[in-house]
Design a protein around this nucleic acid. Structure first.
Lengths: 184, 184
DNA sequence: CCTAAGCATTCACATATGTTAACTAATCAT
DNA sequence: ATGATTAGTTAACATATGTGAATGCTTAGG
C-alpha cells in the first residue's frame, strides 16, 4: 500500500501511519464474500495479496463483471460512488488479504488530509480507463479479438479462474468460448 | 459553468473570475472539428450550448464513441488522461459554443486553487459511471434493449443525429438498426 | 475411496447480426 | 432547379452466437 500510494502522493511516515490506521487488515478464504449485492457498498478494499472477482446474478446467470488483482483498489465502485444499492457480489477467488476502509472514515480522513484525496482521482481515472478499454472491445471487436486481447493482457487469469467466469466476462456463453478455443 | 461548478465546489466571485479567465470562449459551426485524432488531447471543453460527437475511424468505418451534451465537460478523455495520441475526432453536430481550457493551464490553476481540483474527481467519477453503464449494456443486453434504453435516456439524440451514428454507438451496422426499428 | 455435483466440451439446431446489393428518399453543390 | 452524392430501407444469404441436450472429466464431500 505504501508503494502504491507513493507513486501518486508524497507523504511522511506519520501521515502514512495515520492513514493506514483507519483501515483494518482482513483475510478472506477462498470463495468467501467481501461484498454482497442489494445494499450500498460502503467499503473500499486494497488487495494486498490474492484476488477477487465481482459478479452479478442476472436472470439466474452468474455474470462476471470484474477481476480485482493485487496492489489495487477494489469495491463495487458504481454503488460506492452513487450510494445506490449494489448489484455486485465480490468474492475471493483464492485466499486473499486486504486492507478494508470504511467509506465514511476515508472521506473524513480526506477532509483533514487533503492531499490524500488524490486517491479518489487516481481510482476514478484508472477505473475510467479500464472501462473505456473494455467498452471499445465490445463496441467493435469480435469475440476472438476480445479473447486474444485478454489472454495477452492478463494471461494469469486463465490458470486461476474457471472458463465460465472468463466467458461471461467476455460477454458470451461457456459453449461459445469453448467453440472459439477449439477453432483457434 | 458557474452553475455546474457550484454543484460541487463553494467558491467566491473572484475565484470564479480567475478560473474562467484561463478559458477561452469559442464558437464552432456545425461539422467543425474541435479535436483531431493522432495527437495528444491537450484541451478540455465545457459545452455551453450545442453538442458534439466523438468518433474514430476503424478500418474505414466511422464509429461513434460518445455524444457530448451541453453543460458538461468534453474531450478525448482517454488521450487527455494518458497523454497518448488520441484516436478520437470530436466534431460539432450543431453550432456549438464552448469554454476551452488548456490542460497545462488548468492543472497549474489546480495547484494554486486546490479545491477546484475536485473537478478532476467529478469528471472522472462521472465518466466512469457512464462507461460502466454502457459496458453493462454491451456485456449482456441485446441490441433491442440497448436501443430502447438509449431512446429512454436520450430521446433528443434521435432528432439530432443521423441513424448511422446511433447504429455505431450501439455497436451495430445501420442495416441492423433499421431492421430492428422495423420489427418494433 | 466413492459418489454426486458441477464443469468443459461437443453437436444440432435456432436466432441475431453482418454483408452485399438494389432501390428510394433526402440532402448538397452547382 | 438539377444532377450528384449520401442516407435510410429492404431483401437474400453468410456467419456468429445462443440454446438445449448429451457426454465424459474433474472435484468436493461423505
Amino acid at each position: 500500500m505504501r508503494k502504491f500510494l507513493s507513486k501518486y502522493i508524497d507523504f511522511s511516515e506519520e501521515e502514512y501511519e495515520s492513514f493506514i490506521s483507519i483501515a483494518k487488515t482482513k483475510k478472506y478464504s477462498k470463495n468467501e464474500y467481501l461484498l454482497n449485492a442489494n445494499r450500498s457498498a460502503q467499503k473500499l478494499f486494497f488487495v494486498k495479496s490474492g484476488f477477487m472477482r465481482g459478479f452479478r446474478i442476472q436472470e439466474g446467470n452468474d455474470i462476471t463483471h470484474h477481476f480485482y488483482l493485487d496492489n489495487w483498489l477494489a469495491t463495487d465502485y458504481e454503488s460506492y460512488l452513487t450510494g445506490n444499492r449494489g448489484e455486485l457480489y465480490i468474492q475471493a477467488v483464492v485466499d486473499t488479504t486486504v486492507y478494508e476502509f470504511d467509506k465514511i472514515s476515508l472521506y473524513t480522513f480526506f477532509e483533514s488530509h487533503e492531499k490524500f484525496e488524490k486517491i479518489r482521482i487516481i481510482q476514478a481515472e484508472d477505473a475510467y480507463l479500464q472501462m473505456v478499454r473494455r467498452l471499445k472491445n465490445f463496441q467493435y471487436m469480435e469475440l476472438k479479438e476480445r479473447y486474444l486481447e485478454l489472454i495477452n493482457r492478463n494471461p494469469e487469469l486463465f490458470n486461476l479462474v474457471p472458463q465460465r467466469y472468463i466467458a461471461s466476462y467476455l460477454g458470451v456463453t461457456p459453449q461459445s468460448l469453448s467453440r472459439l478455443k477449439n477453432e483457434l
